[in-house]
Design a protein around this nucleic acid. Structure first.
Lengths: 362, 362
DNA sequence: GCTTGTGTTGCAAACGTTGTCATTCCAGCG
DNA sequence: CGCTGGAATGACAACGTTTGCAACACAAGC
């Protein structure tokens, strides 16, 4: 039989409801949305709502997006890693993103970065951002070339500073960057240790490629140098952001004839490892050695002793990033200011730091 | 001045490209998609691609969705909680979801559950699922009434068993449910302790409302009863899924004249607390008391002693859930089978369990 | 020359919803 | 009674993309 034109009743969505009730689709559309519901007579609205409910109606997202021209979804690009959510950084940032987006009525799509570098980075971003109106990138660190490719990228886009190479100046980019003020944070803990009387201060630093590790190192060194308390080479150790690094590094540092009385770590995990190694070596923290971390993750207060550390304002970061995306998406005309937002990172003074004992005065 | 009709060149998207190149939008559309690219002459296609790139063109997602009628995005509903990603359950499940979705070329949208119960639960789900083709619900536990509201919910939907009340039989629902086989898991650890010779076994159980806690308790009790080793009332303690519960509970259990030689916990965190409390009380684990957990989270191997526990197959759960959604979405005709998938939960035997010492034989 | 086939293109009609504009109806007023 | 004004509704044209169908050009075969 010839494909006869379906009666309006068979159609999907709003049209079907309209047909069944003998009203126009416009009326149904108005009745169904709270903003326009006052335009339709109360009893009619009720009938429409009831039928919609009965038919399990839900409006076609595509049509709505198309018609309204907006799309209140943003995409967060993360690396594809099974344990990703347990890292302080990603976990807290993502939670903050959800929160910030929810507050604005926006949705969050999380996309993993495909490893295949077959296509260009820019193309990959295009594809990922396909059905959202902006991207927040917090996946693998970017190469200078990838950063080049981003020039002139049209859709709203925000980078986290951690994804940039050490020597890239965010100000030169075409893209807003949000980050943590590692420098001030590191300075302030170093300064705290100095105030507590410590002069022999060791450093357990992070991995070579990491911008965060680099900046924290700068902060520590700068402040120590200013006080004439630069650490001896054998008091400095670098490794991945892990407890293992803390354990191994602490082992090395503490075996020399003259030991540091305090240690600055590149993050909390390294600090945990350091405290752990100290205990195993028969040293108490903070009595024999003060230890400071960086992150203020959930374990910083849960462990023994509670860790003095720098709080990474990741929720603020996320809030800012979402704000930038939403602003750029809803107001594309306004030229995108190129910004670097370095969020202040407050110090949390807890139990792993203590004034230098007189006995340890040199 | 009268609003003159914009020339096609000013229009957005495909039409603008077509106009600039003097071809029809159809041709541009065909050229841009790999599936249809063979239909257009090679040199023309090249020109189109180049201009598209130059204009940073990206197709309108709404229009595409509307036209094609499909949408390869699914929504995961989570509670709005700042620490959500650090919980074993959510973190691992979500990572699994990302992975499974990515493998199918699907996107994942994460939505937080709005607290305002102003509208019905069903309505809330409708709203959340608005721009995706299916929902995985793993937020707050559902009330029986909310479950009722779900009957006949049209879009693809999957629940996790943990969100169901204790006494709801998943088989009765209209919705597929994925879960962990808590019962077998609990049985197997209890059985392990019995085989190691333990007879005086304490229980540190989870919170009252939790279905997982309930099922695990059932599993423990069932196996212990079968062996004639039901714990005395003073050896049983319940509380939230936290280390605190383990500490407090262990304190109570271990103060009596006759102490258990082993303890089953409702999850890893409780087990950590228990081990901690035991140490503080001068008891060693596993020498003086064996402890088993449930979850096999990242800390289970990182702590001292490494925890004997049950591995929750959360990645499998997520994989299954995503599979169900995708299947239902791409093949709506096929009637949705009502399923409960209880994934097997293997036992991980580590260092926190040990055969009963002869001295402790009753 | 006429047919048949093939490769390339354009036309126009969808897809489901929403906003603008016009229309109808009815109450209230002078 | 005629006019004004508001409330309620419908008709219709978008929104940007895809696709079935028709049209066209050109070559090959009779």
């Amino acid at each position: 039989m010839a494909r006869t034109r379906a009666s309006p009743v068979d159609k999907t969505g709003i049209v079907s409801i309209a047909a069944r009730l003998g009203v126009s689709p416009s009326t149904v559309s108005r009745a169904l949305r709270p903003e326009t519901a006052h335009l339709v007579r109360a009893d009619r609205r009720k009938a429409i709502m009831d039928l919609a409910e009965k038919q399990h109606f839900s409006p076609n997202a595509g049509a709505r997006m198309l018609r309204k021209g907006v799309n209140t979804t943003l995409t967060v690009v993360v690396p594809l890693d099974e344990n990703i959510f347990f890292s302080e950084y990603y976990g807290r940032f993502l939670a903050g993103t959800l929160h910030a987006a929810a507050a604005r009525g926006w949705g969050v799509q999380i996309s993993t970065m495909r490893r295949n570098a077959s296509s260009s980075f820019r193309e990959a971003m295009q594809l990922l951002g396909m059905d959202s109106s902006g991207l927040i990138y917090l996946a693998e660190p970017l190469s200078p070339q990838q950063i080049q490719e981003l020039k002139g990228f049209r859709r709203p886009f925000v980078l986290t500073k951690s994804t940039l190479p050490e020597h890239t100046n965010p100000g030169e980019l075409d893209v807003p960057v949000v980050g943590v003020d590692n420098l001030s944070g590191a300075r302030s803990v170093a300064s705290l240790l100095l105030q507590l009387g410590h002069r022999r201060i060791g450093l357990l630093l992070g991995p070579a490629g990491s911008r965060d590790a680099h900046e924290r190192k700068q902060g520590y060194l700068e402040m120590l140098q200013k006080a004439g308390a630069l650490p001896r080479p054998e008091w400095v150790y670098s490794g991945p952001f892990s407890a293992e690094t803390g354990r191994v590094g602490m082992g090395r540092i503490m075996t020399g004839p003259e030991r540091p009385t305090a240690v600055c770590c590149a993050n909390d995990e390294i600090a945990f490892g350091a405290v752990n190694a100290a205990h195993l070596a028969g040293l108490r923290c903070p009595e024999d050695v003060s230890v400071v971390g960086f992150d203020d993750g959930i374990w910083a207060t849960a462990c023994q002793p509670a860790l003095t550390t720098i709080r990474q304002p990741l929720a603020d970061l996320a809030e800012r990033a979402v704000g930038l995306i939403v602003e750029a998406a809803t107001n594309p005309a306004r030229s995108r200011r190129v910004v670097l937002d370095d969020m202040p990172a407050p110090m949390m003074i807890r139990d792993s730091t203590r004034p230098l004992r007189p006995a340890d005065r040199r």
